[in-house]
Design a protein around this nucleic acid. Structure first.
Lengths: 346, 346
DNA sequence: ATTAGCACTCAACACCAACGAGTGCTAATC
DNA sequence: GATTAGCACTCGTTGGTGTTGAGTGCTAAT
């Protein structure tokens, strides 16, 4: 609050308190600061400064005779103004590259693998959303008969993603008829984006289809609906168990809401909304979801070519090593984007 | 141990103790039994019988002055010889049918939905494995160019399952060439099972391919390897958070191993091995996995036509309501099999 | 064979004192 | 005027103690 003009000494103390609390998970007192970080100040002075910092909302006290811990506002200041930019250690880099390029991985596998590495490196749960498909275009569509009343539609996109849907129809189709239609659709749709397809362009195509094959017209309408509503946007979660190592979740009661969140893909997807900044840190109360009001989420967009945007992220207690996590998440998002661009693009 | 010839009174008492413990999660004493279940016996008599039951291994005492709880052996006897066969309530049946048939679901979605319902109804974590594909046959194969060095292979099976793999190749393929080859492969492979394909039949086909297209011969070998090693066999897990409601997991430490297990699909798959009996109950130490030595797993096969066999299952503390869980799991396996047979088969 | 009676065990709970980390304030010091 | 030493005070944590009560095993009476 107030003005964010903390004088240098306050900044140093706030950083010291935060660093210490991040690594110890215990409220930190003036003595500790004076001893561990030799600031050339006595505990008493530090106490006074800490009292000020508390008044201004950067620190808080769990109870009267305890040390201080950073408030959400404190973390925010720490992240915005005090954080030293860390870079990944060479071992970590090697580790990442080796694990990601071990064998030829498909898109889904690559995302999963990235999540696994992210979880391993950060020791927190990691999440990765599949790229938003709005700008993604068709590469191939294939219709296959399934039974009297249903046709299976398989769609392969630009980015190497494979989706399938069951499509109810009114008449029974033979394999060859559907193959012919697939051919035609491919010819007509290849390179068109999903966005265009649900938009005005659909009307033109719709007419063509009606001419081309009357029977299929209705069914294809359903296909597009289905594609629009389909759960194409997935989220992969890895290392959820990691969070249990954090002392803030020693009580099952604290963990339950999180577990609920982990199980609801919709909610995870909301956490991983792409946004215009490269990297985003949401701290405690800055998160919408009640379940993670005491957690922080670090996310970064990744880009496949310039078509699709997905998000990688890590979740931990607000008391997280922001410097380290930031570096890892940022690097992974860039690297993953690069790999996926190579795989998917022509 | 000994002979499993418990006299009627011991059986009654063992059942009473087990029932009571299942619903209360507290060690149960002789007084409680005498009061709640009017067996016409005094606490003292019951005490004597319980002491015997303990000696024979059916009951155990957490500590000297506590009541008794069933041992794994006790649960085993209970399940084998004391369990009254429950059937599902009409509401549950209606619930299941409504939720499963709400809209046209694909195979994966149907499995996920079944898992969700199972978790809801049992209030335990539910797991469902995708059907083993050995006896499953190709319905359609499609090759699509991805970039200079890679081709994407999409395989649709008999049972409506869609799998995709990236296939590295040496030359660059055009869309039309690949389509021609797809056609040929389809013509050649349709209806052949994966099993046959990795077996002797492969050699015949291999020759044909060599003749048909020399360039593609090598690549297709890789495809088959890939298919053989691919993670086609998935496990869907739902309601993992449910287990946290159980008092035996109030301590995070108790829950950690389970959480690890939930995150390792390989292990879950091992839990869901199809077997010749319809329904299987594994109690406590009967489970191989260290993490669930204090849990029981109830599984049942489901069948798609007579091609493929998958497994549905539920995991809970050994103190679970076996009667209820058994009924639910059994019903769901049958019903799911029926639905999937309808969807997948011609 | 059953059961009433009784002494005994032991986890759980409440209570209490001692401890110590940490604070805020005041007065002395630089 | 800023810094710091000193000190009284707060409050969660730890460990010891006594009480309670559910439950047992054994013995003797029914």
């Amino acid at each position: 609050m107030a003005s964010d003009a903390l004088n240098e000494r306050k900044r140093i103390i706030l950083r010291a308190v935060t660093d210490d609390y991040i690594s110890s998970a215990e409220p930190v007192g003036s003595r500790t600061i004076a001893r561990k970080y030799n600031l050339g100040l006595s505990p008493a002075t530090i106490r006074n400064e800490m009292a000020d910092l508390e008044e201004e909302g950067y620190l808080q006290q769990p109870h009267t005779s305890a040390g201080r811990i950073p408030s959400d506002q404190g973390y925010r200041y720490y992240v915005d103004s005090l954080l030293a930019h860390k870079t990944l250690s060479p071992q970590d880099l090697i580790e990442i590259h080796r694990e990601m390029e071990r064998r030829q991985l498909g898109m889904e596998e690559l995302l999963q693998q990235a999540g696994k590495i992210l979880a391993q490196l950060t020791r927190y749960p990691a999440m990765i959303s599949t790229p938003q498909q709005q700008k993604v275009s068709f590469r191939h569509v294939q219709l296959v008969p399934l039974n009297e009343k249903n046709v299976m539609v398989v769609v392969i996109t630009d980015t190497g993603m494979v989706e399938n849907q069951i499509l109810p129809t009114e008449v029974e189709w033979t394999y060859d008829e559907l193959d012919r239609i697939s051919k035609w659709i491919n010819h007509r749709l290849r390179g068109i984006t999903l966005e265009e397809l649900t938009g005005k362009r659909w009307n033109e195509i719709r007419l063509d289809i009606e001419i081309e094959d009357h029977n299929f017209h209705h069914a294809l309408g359903i296909l597009l609906d289905a594609l629009a509503n389909s759960r194409r946007d997935r989220v992969y979660l890895d290392g959820a168990a990691n969070i249990l190592e954090q002392p803030e979740f020693r009580e099952v009661e604290r963990f339950k809401p999180l577990m609920g969140l982990f199980e609801t893909e919709d909610v995870l997807r909301k956490l991983l909304k792409p946004n215009d900044k490269g990297v985003t840190i949401r701290i405690g109360y800055e998160n919408e979801q009640e379940a993670i009001k005491e957690c922080s989420v670090v996310t970064a967009n990744y880009r496949i070519g310039d078509n699709a945007v997905g998000v990688v992220g890590v979740l931990g207690p607000t008391r997280m090593d922001y410097g380290k996590i930031l570096a890892i998440v940022e690097y992974m998002s860039k690297y993953l984007g690069k790999l996926l661009t190579d795989v998917g693009n022509k």
